[in-house]
Design a protein around this nucleic acid. Sequence first.
DNA 1: CTGACTGCAAACGTTTTGCACGGTA
DNA 2: TACCGTGCAAAACGTTTGCAGTCAG
Lengths: 136, 136
Amino acid sequence: METTIELLKEHALKVTPQRLKIIAMLNEYGHLSIEDLYRLMLKEFPNVSLATIYKNINQMAQTRLIQEVKIPDSKSVYEIVKEPHLHMVCDRCHKVEDIIIGTDKIIKEAEAVSGYRIEESFITLRGICPACQADS
Amino acid sequence: METTIELLKEHALKVTPQRLKIIAMLNEYGHLSIEDLYRLMLKEFPNVSLATIYKNINQMAQTRLIQEVKIPDSKSVYEIVKEPHLHMVCDRCHKVEDIIIGTDKIIKEAEAVSGYRIEESFITLRGICPACQADS
DNA sequence: CTGACTGCAAACGTTTTGCACGGTA
DNA sequence: TACCGTGCAAAACGTTTGCAGTCAG
């Protein structure tokens, strides 16, 4: 289990309170938009600038500490880079969740059909989450 | 085989030269960004407005004649709506291709693991296309 | 003939940039 | 101390809107 400070250092980024907070928020919530990050950050750092959020997100994305997740018909969210996974998006409550499922079969099939050498897959599934199914 | 005119009428959109051209371009190239559409359109309609592109793309997307495809680390492209498929993006030449592969297995597994009722899947695979593999 | 579509210009929201100051290593 | 990061303000960028004139149905 690695500390947030180590995580920043490994990615050649200086340790600042704002960066620690961004990572802490992503660890807590999983997926957050720029606006989410800014609003939450304001509670603890009332003078934080939106430019700081953008600069940090861009740098962390460049060093692959975090990554952008593009959601159909919605704003992008960001997450800490970890093991490969799929994204589930609920149509009702709009939450984004990770699930871990083997993708080897579909990738092998895609390589066979297309002739591509595949490096990475981005899979997002849209539907209704268990909680929202129960509510209806 | 349906005509472009019929396609527009089915989606309750008036038939204009600009719309016919947009659809013709998407049929020819498969996937185009807003900027691509504008640049290509200018050759035939030197006075076309970017606002016209946006208005038409938004309307065609609302009526589900076309759909946006969000590409990781790149601009969105648009395509005519047809049967469900995956997208392949080449890291070298940046082309976007469709491939058709069954996704039932992975969707069933995702539903089992997550409890979601899945409505739609968005799958994009990044790698090197056969032509670029040959070039290296 | 009526409503929808187009082109233009202005407005808008989001993201980026430049700079002076302050903090990290 | 040297450089990087921050906050602020301005600029740049992509997209949307309002309007007057035109065109499709």
